[in-house]
Amino acid sequence: MAEEAHSEGTGLVFHPLDQFIVKPLFGEGPIQWYTPTNVTLWMALAVLCVVALFVIGTRGRAIVPTRVQSVAEVMYGFIYKMIEDVTGHDGVKYFPYIMTLFVFILFANYLGLLPMSFTPTSHIAVTAVLGFGVFIIVTLIGFVKNGPSFLGLFWMSDAPLILRPVIAIIEVISYFVRPVSHSIRLAGNIMAGHAVIKVFAGFAAIAAISPISILAIVAIYGLEVLVAFIQAYVFTILTCVYLKDALHPHH
């Protein structure tokens, strides 16, 4: 990319995307599907955080919760209420699945904000699996629960008859675009934020503008803390919305 030439010309080093490189943890060599990489490490850390918060944090089963337990309870209640509000009571069955998505994305995002870390959710491969996973599961649920009448989702029975086929085509397209937007939204947000921080960090090498650059890094870091939560939230609530469409396809 452009930064290769740029870096050699001015002495500024811009490698905003290097933080996303997938590397083997041990040694060099080609990356097989089973190779432990930095992806493995940071996903494992996310899993450990989930275990620490939700298993070790709640081991007291206290009526009056400890701090960690109340955090776990707040997250439980947050997602549970979201599912109940968006999908209705029959969506509660899928609570563990949606909770899994939420806590994984949340912890991956937040761990990715640590300096020198790697962010799995900045990779389209990861978010695409999450997004298409939701798409496939939700579509299957739709057909299993409703049978062919699930297709009524695309047939607006309250629209004028002439417009219905047109609307149906648009609805079908938008339905199939869902997983793409669902996954690219997450990866794009996380990647962009991290890359921008790196770009400003590159400018910090110039003494004259380094204070501005550092201030900008702080500001964007603050924004990224917000984005890390909001993207996890958005991914989860969209999952709930899609699930609602699958459970109640008739508008």
């Binding site: 997938v22 990356i31 097989q32 599907w33 089973y34 190779t35 990489t37 992806v39 493995t40 996903m43 494992a44 996310a46 899993v47 994984f104 799995p120 990779h123 491969a125 990861v126 699996v129 999450l130």
Partner: peptide, 12 residues
């Protein structure tokens, strides 16, 4: 790197 990421993602 996709197979690697997808594999570890599914495991996680």
């Amino acid at each position: 790197t996709f197979p690697n990421q997808i594999f570890w993602l599914v495991v996680s």
